[in-house]
């Protein structure tokens, strides 16, 4: 698979390390009253869809940036690549 890095252009997926579902960006609030339940769901449960999947890849052998890759997990086709920092900021994180 070739991942089209937003800054570096097309790179072989071998340069990357895979983490998992991009929902891992949305870390729950540890002070919420139901934080235990939220963290259980956050850490252990996955949608695991058979189709488009937004996921986190780390450019370990490259510029060490985190990317959010939208990929069809049935065909392995990569549909969109964003910087994870942009995604997190657009969700109100890392202000």
């Amino acid at each position: 698979m070739i991942i089209n890095h937003p800054l570096l252009g097309p790179r072989d997926s071998q340069e990357f390390t895979y983490l998992g579902d991009a929902s891992l960006i949305d870390r729950p609030d540890w002070q919420a009253p139901d934080a235990v339940d939220q963290f259980h769901d956050y850490l252990y449960l996955r949608d695991n869809p058979a189709g488009e999947h937004r996921e986190l890849w780390f450019h370990e052998q490259g510029d060490r940036s985190w990317l959010v890759v939208t990929r069809n997990v049935v065909t392995h086709e990569i549909l969109n690549v964003e910087l994870a920092s942009d995604v997190a900021r657009s969700r109100g994180r890392s202000k």
Binding site: G20, D21, D41, L45, R46, D47, N48, A50
Partner: peptide, 18 residues
């Protein structure tokens, strides 16, 4: 292999990735 797909019919999310 397809557990998440089938169990989603029951509204369940599983501690599983395929």
């Amino acid at each position: 292999g397809s557990s998440s797909k089938v169990m989603s019919h029951a509204g369940m999310r599983l501690p599983i990735e395929s």
